[in-house]
Design a protein around this nucleic acid. Structure first.
Length: 452
RNA sequence: GUGGCUGUAGCUCAGUCGGUUAGAGCAUCGGAUUGUGGUUCCGAGGGUCGCGGGUUCGAAUCCCGUCAGCCACCCCA
């Protein structure tokens, strides 16, 4: 028997699952707010769905194997190929723009480290069929609004945005040849992660003059959009992309996310399939990996799904996001108010058979309350009430319920101060029979206690 | 896949120069004379010292291997 999960895989204990659910809830709530609908696909796919796009060398990073029928298969490392296939298959029938999201569990076979496991959940939000940069702004707004939903502010998280077409135009204007561009992208992409000398060396090796090297490195590290526009706004190769980017930023402002957004030309997003505006969300301190990344990939659907439609999307993983929420202490207290009532043996309980406690629990549950009680009759009768009440509080009950000496059923709030706790008594017979007005009365009282 | 660092209770960590039955705090569970909540007091459970081998009269401690975690590469869909 194995004593722990496989490396890079997680067991979700209840408090951990509560955190995961909390994140999922935020994802779904915001996605719905922006009128996206949820879809899903298979976690296991034919291997060639991934090798077709990225080549065979990717296999080393895939959780791939041969199944019992001799098929080459892989656990899905990303959602986009599945998405592209699904959209491609029904492209002509789908109303455009398509606004879909999914929360797949994704897998990759590589060494696990902080923020990077072999398994994670990733929100995928995609728009298909809209080429306008309004769609790009809307997509970023979804990502940013999720940060807000989870309690993060633009002091905590920054959205860095760029546009490949714009970077391309600027490089062309500067005289970087098309042949050199791939190498320049690679350097620009990791400009913050590798020593400056290494970047200089690599650019020089690509054939850039010393002056050009300095120019490129300067632009990629912290140029504001205002400066960029002033310098290249009229350059024929860059003019159109810069004007588009300016409109994009205006849309971002209008959507209320302007304060989160910064131009960062070093955002290249790998060297993969992105064709236009790209973005990443980072924690403001820059201590963690990217929280979220995405952008426009206008040619991908044609390559994979067959439909020639402009598309854009992003992925947001649960791991780094969770680390950030932990760091900022933004997890709610999940145990608080998890249970409505906890039955305890109060005064007069001995005169009442244990079965009455179970009947009361049943009646309360029938009325929709969440009810806990001791499962051991002996202990219910023998354990000091204060210990039972203490246990109820620790279990997250909002109130305890017990039979009073005079036969009434009394609820005592566990919320607020321990001295002078609010109590509320109802007729025992009515409570045990599940009398609707009595239950409504209790519901109103509980609601009152919680909103104090 | 490569390199560095670290592995003692569920968690955070002590553990002397190698010495006999490995400890503490927190957490968990039980109790403090039929009692009404977070404090306090008493008690209990919980360990193959990551695993395997070696050196030694004797190993948590020293050596080798291995596995896992963290960090940096690689990669980032």
């Amino acid at each position: 028997m194995s004593s722990s999960a496989l490396p890079g895989f997680r067991d979700f204990y209840p408090d951990e699952l509560a955190r995961r659910t909390h994140v999922f809830r935020a994802w779904r709530a915001v996605a719905h707010k922006y009128a996206f609908v949820e879809y899903d696909g298979p976690p296991l796919e034919p291997l060639d769905l991934y090798t077709k796009k990225s080549g065979d060398e990717i296999v080393g990073q895939l959780y791939a194997f041969t199944d019992k029928g001799g098929r080459e298969v892989s656990l899905r490392p990303e959602m986009t190929p599945t998405f592209a296939r699904m959209v491609g298959a029904k492209a002509s029938a789908l109303r455009k723009p398509v606004r879909w999201f999914a929360i797949p569990q994704l897998f990759r076979y590589e060494r696990a480290q902080r923020g990077r496991l072999r398994e994670h959940f990733q929100l995928n939000v995609d728009i298909v069929g809209e080429a306008s940069e309004v769609a790009d702004a809307e997509l970023l707004a979804v990502a940013v609004d999720i940060m807000r939903e989870l309690g993060l502010t633009h002091e905590d998280v920054r959205a860095r945005v760029s546009d490949r077409r714009m970077l391309n135009g600027v490089l062309e204007t500067l005289g970087v040849t098309e042949a050199q561009r791939g190498a320049v992208y690679a350097v620009v992409d990791k400009i913050a992660r590798q020593p400056r000398e290494v970047s200089v060396e690599k650019l020089a090796a690509a054939g850039l003059s010393t002056a050009l090297v300095e120019r490129v490195l300067g632009l990629a590290s912290g140029t504001s959009f205002a400066d960029l526009r002033r310098e290249f706004g009229e350059a024929p190769a860059a003019r159109e992309a810069i004007a588009r980017f300016a409109r994009y930023l205006e849309h971002c402002d209008a959507l209320g996310i302007g304060a989160w957004v910064t131009l960062d030309l070093s955002i290249v997003r790998g060297l993969a399939y992105y064709t236009g505006i790209v973005f990443e969300l980072f924690d403001a301190k820059g201590e963690l990996r990217a929280i979220c990344g995405g952008g426009r990939y206008d040619d991908l659907l044609k390559a994979i799904g067959g439909a020639d439609l402009p598309s854009l999307g992003f992925g947001m993983g649960d791991v780094v996001l969770g680390e950030l929420l932990t760091e900022r202490k933004l997890w709610p207290d999940f145990t608080a108010d998890a249970i409505d009532f906890h039955l305890v043996a109060g005064n007069g309980a001995i005169a009442r058979p244990y079965a009455d406690a179970l009947k009361l629990a049943t009646a309360l549950r029938g009325a929709g309350f969440s009810v806990a009680h001791g499962l051991n009759e002996e202990r219910y009768k023998s354990q000091a009430t204060r210990n039972q009440v203490d246990g109820a509080k620790k279990a997250g009950a909002s109130a305890v319920v017990y039979f009073r000496e005079d036969g009434a059923v009394e609820a005592m709030s566990l919320l607020g101060k321990m001295t002078g706790a609010a109590t509320h008594a109802v007729d025992a017979g009515a409570a045990l029979s599940g009398d609707a007005p009595t239950m409504q009365d209790l519901r109103r009282w509980l609601h009152e206690q919680r909103s104090r």
